[in-house]
Design a protein around this nucleic acid. Structure first.
Ligand SMILES: [Mn+2]
Ligand SMILES: [Mn+2]
Ligand SMILES: [Zn+2]
Ligand SMILES: [Zn+2]
Lengths: 137, 137
DNA sequence: TAAATATTTGCAACAATATTGCAAAAAATA
DNA sequence: TATTTTTTGCAATATTGTTGCAAATATTTA
């Protein structure tokens, strides 16, 4: 039993070709993936709808998280911390490269606190930095 | 000639009922507006397509800016700084209230700088804070 | 291992959101 | 006011995401 099967098993998910294929794609990628990226790479094996459902399941299980974007696209990336079952701990900064268009999780960079006007109570913060990544600079 | 007409004139845009109506909606609203909000309030006067085109035009002219969101919805808000023709200066924090669901621009709260890993060159930053707003706390 | 059960998948239909071309209408200019 | 330019509405089309359901596959039980 390979790593991907183990991940599925650990999360009480049935081991299927589609799920393994999608896990492979995430582990092979440096950056975040859009639904379209996955469909393009696994489209011969998987139906559109299955991709949607798999991504949803993986988010629920804490295997991947939705990446915030400024262009209202939907991106997903692996959870490196041990997130589980609806409890995500991804308070890290996300970086979008203007050159290669990749979006990467800066897992070690925590979103800084910020002083809000009186009366505002912060609960969660997200931060997206755009610029040039370490490959493109 | 009223304020809204002047705004349009200043931006070399024809003065039309639709554009004035949409400006009115933005100036009457505390928070950011979605396309659907505008359509709901101006739908009798305006076609869906005209709303899309007007929002796009206003963004290009620097009258409004797209508000970053974490739920891949598209929101727009007035530019308070003097943004113009593709040059936006909206490096302020955006706040989403979990209670009333409003998204507001915290125009006076600047997105803090953050230390990135070696090789990453930041150009622009966006920050979205969720929590309870000053009306709902 | 084979049968029974539970889960996942693909397909088709549908819904919501957004874009485009083009002729009619309205606004700006002469 | 006549001419020119810009904007608008409509219809058609594209893109993205959701749902119900039967067939296929995976897991569990015996
Ligand atoms: Mn991330
Ligand atoms: Mn804003
Ligand atoms: Zn890059
Ligand atoms: Zn509120």
């Amino acid at each position: 039993m390979n790593t991907f099967s183990e991940i599925l098993k650990r999360n009480s998910l049935s081991i299927t070709d589609g799920r393994i294929k999608i896990l492979e794609l995430f582990y092979a990628s440096d950056g975040a993936l859009a639904h379209a990226d996955i469909e393009k790479n696994a489209g011969l094996v998987l139906d559109r709808v299955t991709v949607y459902r798999t991504l949803q399941t993986f988010v629920e299980k804490g295997i991947i998280h939705q990446v915030p974007t400024t262009d209202n696209s939907v991106l997903y990336a692996l959870c490196r911390q041990n997130c589980a079952n609806g409890h995500h701990h991804d308070n890290h900064v996300h970086f979008v490269c203007n050159q290669c268009q990749e979006t990467v999780c800066l897992d070690d960079v925590t979103v800084p606190a910020v002083k809000l006007p009186a009366g505002f109570k912060p609960i969660q913060s997200a931060m997206i930095v755009t610029g040039l990544c370490n490959n493109c600079k």
